[in-house]
Amino acid sequence: MLIEPVGHGPKFSRRAVLRGASGLFFSLAVAGSLRADTMALNIVEVAPGVYVHQGHVELQSPTNLGGMSNAGFVVGDVGVAVIDTLGSAKMGAALRAAIRSVTDKPIVYVINTHMHPDHVFGNAAFLQDNATFVGHRKLAAGLLARADSYLQSSQQMMGAEALQGTQVITPSLDVSDHHVLDLGGRQLTCRAQPTAHTDNDLIVTDSKTGVTFLGDLLFDTHIPTIDGSARGWLQTIDKLQGQSLTHVVPGHGEPLMKSPEAFNSVKRYLQQLITDVKQDIQSGKSMADSVNTAGLSEQNRWDLFEQYHKRNVTAVYAEIEWE
């Protein structure tokens, strides 16, 4: 998903912006003990050695601590790779504790499927493992440009305490096209995607089970959010549906789904939005009016529709009005 910009934060003056730039890497508070022991995270082994935590389909809150996305890990003969780290260092620590309940093998890779805070803000919990952070080559740029605003809105939604220990951590290994990570007895292939959900989407396929982590290229239950390109996303879905993916893990919703049919709902939503917005633009309807009508046929098909749909219309409108 995408972070919810809510107001009433500290006033965002030009000086605050400048200050923020120099202190981008500051952690919001000095990390105390992360108290991961107090939180047991549900995990399910979706395939041998492949585990998924299913996040809540809801907005960030002081209760969920940013645990509203799916995250996973894959256990090899020599090491473990984590795929996404949830939305705070505290949730990252809870995920780490869940991994430790399954295996003592070293955590060697932390892969982020894209820049959104509910997928990367738990990264700090894995600094102690000296893991290699892996992401799309454009992840760092996208995240750093938005980091201040992500931290600010996360704090507004969850409270400062929830963010204790949270840091903005960018990949130490950039993936431009694809990269193979060896866990011993199994390999994870990371493939960078062209602009779709964001401009830094990365998918991860396990060689042993064929399970592919799609990040937010696939949404289930949770309304898709568009922070890249709706047209690009549809093209990427077409491409992925044509590949021999079998079992896929969405960024939100069910822990495991079957491709190609898993993509159908997202595809229908994006197509409907583009069709409706295109028609609005052609008939001279402005953005302000289009948000009230475009894509309404999708209203009862998704959770969090009220929270994200109009913004999606805005994004699609701004994207396709130049076509």
């Binding site: 965002f12 912006v17 454009k138 938005r146 809105s153 690009g232």
Partner: peptide
């Protein structure tokens, strides 16, 4: 009610 619009990167697709 809105926030963060002035520092938002533009465009969404950096390429």
């Amino acid at each position: 009610k809105a926030s963060g619009g002035c520092s938002a990167p533009s465009p969404k697709d950096s390429d």
